[in-house]
Amino acid sequence: MTVAVATIGFTKTTAENFFARLKAAKVKRVIDVRLHNTSQLAGFAKADDLAYFLKTINGMDYVPEPILAPTEELMKFFKTDKGDWDVFSRDFSALMKERKVEKALKPSFLDGACLLCSEATAHRCHRRLVVEYLNKEWSGALTVAHL
């Protein structure tokens, strides 16, 4: 069974563009993988507001999933201290392994879902690391689109 999953970031975009991309991708559920989901980076992306907007505008569910978020220490290392991406990637992958996220979640949970984080692109964002890790652990069960 192949599971279609997407990822999206909300910075450097408008609310109109953000919600349109989700709708065009036929997303059913947005899974928030941020450590702090009350971010002020974009007004429409605060957890409570986002849940309302997703349901009202696109008929989508909102699910915060903290098991897929980095720790405070990892975020500080990478963002505040401008740490090395390769070190962050290695340490975050080790954290997912320690948390056994591949056992805590099922591929069906991600079917039609979109992982949400703040980074504009997936290139240097942990949401990409999440789908890559799960795809490896689930023997390539995911088809991933970065919106």
Rank of each mutant, 00 (worst) to 15 (best):
I67Y: 12
L105H: 07
G83K: 02
N37A: 05
A145V: 12
K23G: 00
C125A: 11
Y133G: 09
I67Q: 13
A94G: 05
L142R: 09
C114N: 01
T143W: 00
T80G: 04
M75Y: 06
P70W: 05
E16D: 14
L129E: 02
N37S: 06
S89R: 12
E102M: 08
V63H: 12
F77Q: 01
L115I: 03
D32F: 00
S118C: 07
S39F: 07
R90V: 05
W85I: 03
A24H: 06
K103L: 14
L142Q: 03
L105N: 08
H146W: 02
C125P: 07
F77T: 00
D49V: 15
D32M: 03
S108V: 14
E119N: 11
M75P: 04
Q40F: 00
G140R: 10
Q40N: 13
G112S: 06
L134C: 04
A24R: 12
T143V: 12
H36M: 09
A15K: 13
T38A: 14
K46D: 12
E132F: 01
C125F: 03
T13R: 14
V63E: 14
Q40L: 13
D32S: 01
P107A: 12
A15I: 06
T14M: 09
V101K: 10
M96F: 08
F77M: 10
D86E: 15
A141R: 10
Y52L: 15
I8Y: 04
T7G: 07
D84A: 00
D49N: 14
F77S: 10
T2G: 06
N37D: 11
L95W: 05
K100W: 05
K76G: 05
Y52D: 14
R124M: 11
L129M: 11
A113Q: 09
L95D: 02
K23I: 01
K79N: 14
A51T: 01
G140M: 01
E132L: 01
L54M: 09
V101D: 03
R127I: 03
D61K: 13
A69Y: 02
I31G: 04
T13K: 12
S93V: 13
E137H: 09
S89W: 00
L22G: 02
H36E: 10
Y52W: 09
K46I: 06
L134W: 09
V5G: 04
T71D: 04
G112P: 06
K136Q: 14
T14L: 11
A145Q: 12
T56E: 15
R127S: 05
E65M: 14
E137C: 06
D86N: 15
I8S: 09
A24S: 13
R124S: 11
K100M: 13
I8A: 09
L147D: 00
W85N: 05
L54Y: 02
S39L: 08
F53S: 12
